[in-house]
Structures are given as structure tokens and as C-alpha cells.
């Protein structure tokens, strides 16, 4: 789906192609739908069809966003959520790449690990949540372990595929040129598999992000955006919830645009594995 997004003509590119006036028009074109939807929301909110506690005006949502940010509550929630995401994802990346390479290079590892991995993968990650909470207790530890467990699957599968996709000819020619085990791995296998590994990491992070907020709601962690919006339900603070959802969306967008598109540019493109 990310390639579907890449296919879109980005407004910025349109702006660069034409003069500065085209750029402003592109920005206006992007802003227009948000203004229309915002206006509709505001009309519905102020019309009094729904209770204002359940359907707050944008003004109130913005007010909560500013208030909670200024008081440091929202940054604390966001920081804890990000920390869990990073911790879980780092474990998944390290373990997933290692297992994937093992499976790609050794038949025995592949035969032993592929069946259980293929069996556990189709179960949606969040379904494991209560089991992990039972095993590891409520709180951060369970959350991080679950996030690591769930996001490891795409990493393992893609690393495994990537290592297997390294061309036999490259391996043989490198070996003929005198590359030993370590150098062969570092200079041929790893760069060759890297596009796949990065795809796996990207999918893993997306997976982790998709369930983390939900798991935080289940795990009763003291801080975290998921817990913040779930806790706000008790007090019918829909404005706080929506402010939390906005922050969650912003983090999700930043993860996709900031982390992975950049990572891909610096490594894979530089090594000449992708244009």
C-alpha cells in the first residue's frame, strides 16, 4: 500500500515543476478538504444534535491539545508510548533479522523454524495480548514483549526471503575471488538481502504501531497514549480522546515519512541495490 501512496503525485513535486504560484495552489488544494471537513464537524458540534461531551467542537479539542501539551502530560504519555514502541521494535528487529538469516542460510534452521513461525503468524497479534498479560503480568513488560513478538514475524519472513533471493552467482563469484565466510556475509549476503530486510522492518514497525495503542488499553500501563484515551472514556472526555488520536496520527505519519523513507534512501539506494 505504501507503493500506492508513492504513486500519488506529491503536491510538493507539482509545486517544484511549475512556478511558486503553483506551489501555493497545491497547498491550498491539500488544505481545502480539511477545511471543509472541519467546518462540517464544527457545524454538527455546535448544532447541539449530540451532547457536547460526546461530540466536542474543534476548539475544545485544540484547547485540550494545547493544555495537555503545556502541562507536560501529553508529552509524557507520548514519550512512554514511543519508548515501548522502540524497545519492542528493537528486540523484534535484532531477533527477527538474526532468525531470518539463520533460516535463509541453514536448511536445518529453515526446516525447524518455518512451520511454527508460519503457524503463529496468521493469528492477529492482539489476540495474544491477554495470554501475555497472564504470563508476564499487566504493565510495560508485557506490552513490550507482545509488540516485539508481533512485529518480529514480518522481519523474519522478509529477511528469510531476502537471504534466499541473493543470487547464487554473486556468492560463487565472491567466493572465487577469495571472500571467506565473514566477508562473504558482510559484503554480499547482507547488502543483497537488505532491500527485503528493510521492507520487513518497515512492515514490522507498522504492525507494532497498529497494535501498540490497543495493547496499552488492555495492559493498564500507567502512562501511554492508548491508556490516556482509554482512561478518558471513564470521564466522557471526548475532547481529550480526540486530542490523543491527533497525536497518535501525527506519530504514525512521522514514523512512515521520517524513519523509513529516509533509511531506505541512505542505505539501499547508496549501495546501488535499488534505483
Amino acid at each position: 500500500m505504501s507503493h500506492a501512496m508513492d504513486a500519488a503525485p506529491p503536491p510538493a513535486a507539482v509545486g517544484q515543476a511549475s512556478a511558486g504560484g503553483g506551489r501555493w495552489r497545491a497547498i491550498a488544494r491539500t488544505a481545502l478538504p480539511f477545511l471543509v471537513v472541519g467546518a462540517l464537524w464544527e457545524i454538527v458540534a455546535r448544532a447541539g444534535i449530540f451532547h457536547p461531551r460526546l461530540f466536542p467542537s474543534l476548539e475544545e479539542v485544540a484547547f485540550q491539545l494545547v493544555r495537555l501539551t503545556a502541562s507536560g502530560v501529553l508529552p509524557h504519555h507520548a514519550a512512554d508510548t514511543l519508548l515501548r514502541l522502540l524497545a519492542g521494535f528493537a528486540i523484534a528487529a535484532a531477533a527477527g533479522v538474526a532468525v531470518g538469516i539463520l533460516m535463509g542460510r541453514w536448511r536445518l534452521a529453515e526446516d525447524l523454524l518455518l512451520p511454527p513461525v508460519s503457524m503463529a503468524a496468521p493469528i492477529p497479534g492482539i489476540a495474544y495480548a491477554p495470554l501475555f498479560l497472564l504470563w508476564f503480568g499487566p504493565g510495560s513488560v508485557s506490552t513490550v514483549i507482545l509488540v516485539a513478538f508481533v512485529s518480529a514475524f514480518p522481519v523474519v519472513f522478509n529477511t528469510w526471503t531476502g537471504v534466499k533471493a541473493v543470487k547464487e552467482v554473486w556468492l560463487r563469484s565472491a567466493a572465487a575471488m577469495g571472500a571467506g565466510g565473514g566477508r562473504l556475509f558482510l559484503k554480499v549476503v547482507l547488502p543483497g538481502a537488505l532491500p527485503y530486510i528493510l521492507t520487513g522492518l518497515r512492515l514490522g514497525l507498522a504492525q507494532a504501531w497498529r497494535i501498540l495503542v490497543g495493547v496499552e488499553m488492555l495492559a493498564a500501563v500507567p502512562w501511554g497514549l492508548g491508556w490516556m484515551i482509554f482512561g478518558a472514556r471513564e470521564f466522557l472526555n471526548t475532547d481529550v480522546m480526540l486530542a490523543g488520536v491527533v497525536v497518535i496520527g501525527a506519530i504514525g505519519l512521522a514514523l512512515e515519512k521520517g524513519v523509513f523513507q529516509r533509511l531506505e534512501r541512505y542505505t539501499v539506494v547508496r549501495w546501488g541495490m535499488m534505483s
Partner: peptide
């Protein structure tokens, strides 16, 4: 994530 909307 869709689950973020659950409380809302």
C-alpha cells in the same frame, strides 16, 4: 491505528 478509535 483503528484500535485508537475504540474508546471514542
Amino acid at each position: 491505528p483503528s484500535l485508537a478509535w475504540v474508546p471514542v
